[in-house]
Each structure stands twice: as C-alpha cells, then as structure tokens.
Amino acid sequence: MAFEVHLHPKLERQLTAMEGQANAPSIAAGRARKIIEAMIQGRTSQASGLFRARSDARVKNCWKYDLGAGYRLICIRTKQIIYIMHIGDHESCDVWLNNNSKKQPHNTEIKMTAFTICDNPAPFDFQTARSPNRKPAFDDQFLTPIPQEYLRKVFCGLVPG
C-alpha cells in the first residue's frame, strides 16, 4: 500500500494550461484533478470516475490513465509512493514515455510536492472498471447510433456485400 503521493512540479503548470483551454483539454484536466484527489484521499480509482488505466512497459511500474479525447495522465507506482509525472495529449505522453524509457524518472533531484495519503482502510487501487456513478461521455449522451445499412452504403468498398 502506498503512503504518499508526489506531484512533479511541471504537472501543475500542465494542468493549469489545460484548464485555460476550451473543451477537451479543460475536461481532461478536471478528470485528472479528480483522480489525483482520490489518490491523496486514499479512495479507490472508481470513486474518482476513472475511465481507464493501463500499465506501460516502457517505464517500470508506469500507469497511463485515459482521461478521454486523447488525453492521458502518467503515474509511477512504487510500494510506498505514487508519483504523478505527466499529463497531456496522447502524442506528448508517448514522447515522454519514449524519452524516459528504461529509466527511473521518479528518482531525480527535482523536489516534488508530497502529500501523505489519508488513513483509509481501502487502499487506492488501479482498477480499470468504469465507475457506476460516472456521467456518460458526450458521444453516449447526445449522438444516436448510426444504422448498419447507412454504414454499409458509406463504406461499401470496405465491407463485402
């Protein structure tokens, strides 16, 4: 069980910049703040409405959180500490992972903001299930499904008969 959450100094600047933008970046920053807050409070990832988390083989113990619309939050988890390292669109996160591949980016001289995880009987987990009380995505709320017959007409060269 982790006892601390460490935030990289660039993370707050990245979050602030994303919140200043419109639509998807702002929504992704809000989702990231909920995940970070859940980590600090020791709640499970479902409590923060986590969309999806996957480990990444390029950096040891690395987790990528899918914030929607191509935005990701990158964390590194050790036995004692969760390091929240980077947030950005898919391409910037991919570059960050490639630049830190086979390294330990959390073991640096950079002073990170540290939070002690509140005493909670249920430790933070990295579940990939969708929270039952999470609001549906924009696509789920406002867009109706396209009938198969229309899709087959539009993509007739891709689908047989």
Rank of each mutant, 00 (worst) to 15 (best):
D119Q: 13
I81Q: 02
A29D: 02
A22Q: 08
D140F: 01
T108W: 06
H6S: 12
N99F: 01
K34G: 11
R43Y: 15
A129S: 14
K34N: 14
M39P: 14
T116S: 13
A29S: 02
M39T: 11
N107S: 09
G30R: 01
A137T: 08
R77L: 06
P145F: 12
A57L: 13
R52L: 00
L143M: 15
G42I: 00
G88N: 07
T113Y: 08
P145V: 13
Y150H: 11
H8F: 02
W63N: 12
G157R: 12
I36Q: 11
F138W: 10
G42Y: 03
E149L: 06
Q104L: 00
S55M: 11
F51E: 07
Q46T: 08
T116V: 14
N23W: 00
S26D: 00
Q46K: 15
I36H: 09
G20M: 06
R43N: 15
W96L: 04
I117F: 12
S92G: 05
T44L: 12
T108M: 04
P121K: 15
D66E: 14
M112Q: 09
S26H: 03
A2C: 08
Y65S: 08
I35H: 11
M112S: 09
D119K: 15
K60G: 11
W96S: 04
D125F: 01
A22I: 05
N133I: 04
C62P: 06
F126C: 01
F3L: 04
L67H: 04
C156A: 15
G70V: 07
